[in-house]
């Protein structure tokens, strides 16, 4: 089994995280924002797994399981918010919900 170099694994995680962050900042559709957040979470998880395999510790994979659980919970809340948003504003544009300014 060819070991993946930690450098490469972390680079991949960093790229995925940046992609996700850019998606969160650029996208206006709430659904895509949620997707981008998922990408970021997975990037973090990947970083944990890579680190775990580097030091041959199970902790990295345990952390990834936690992240998965949390991501599931986050998505359920996020989707509920999404439904409410659509219900109230008939659109998924996140910029429409800016009444709490100032």
């Amino acid at each position: 089994m060819a070991l993946v170099l930690m450098r490469h694994g972390l680079l991949l995680a960093g790229i995925l995280f940046a992609l996700g962050l850019v998606g969160v900042l650029v996208r206006r559709n709430l659904l895509f924002i949620l997707l981008s957040i998922e990408v970021m979470l997975n990037a973090t998880g990947l970083a944990f797994v890579v680190a775990g395999s580097r030091w041959i510790q199970p902790d990295g994979q345990v952390m990834f399981l936690f992240i998965l659980t949390m991501a599931a919970a986050e998505v359920s809340v996020g989707l509920a918010l999404l439904l409410q948003l659509y219900h109230r504003f008939k659109s998924l544009d996140i910029d429409a919900v800016s009444r709490m300014r100032g």
């Binding site: 900042l25 910029d95 919900v97 300014r101």
Partner: peptide
């Protein structure tokens, strides 16, 4: 300070980032 409170989620996300 109150001018920074735009109410736009993406601004807040950018600020956090």
């Amino acid at each position: 300070l109150s001018a920074t409170q735009t109410g736009r989620v993406r601004w807040y996300a950018a600020a956090i980032g």
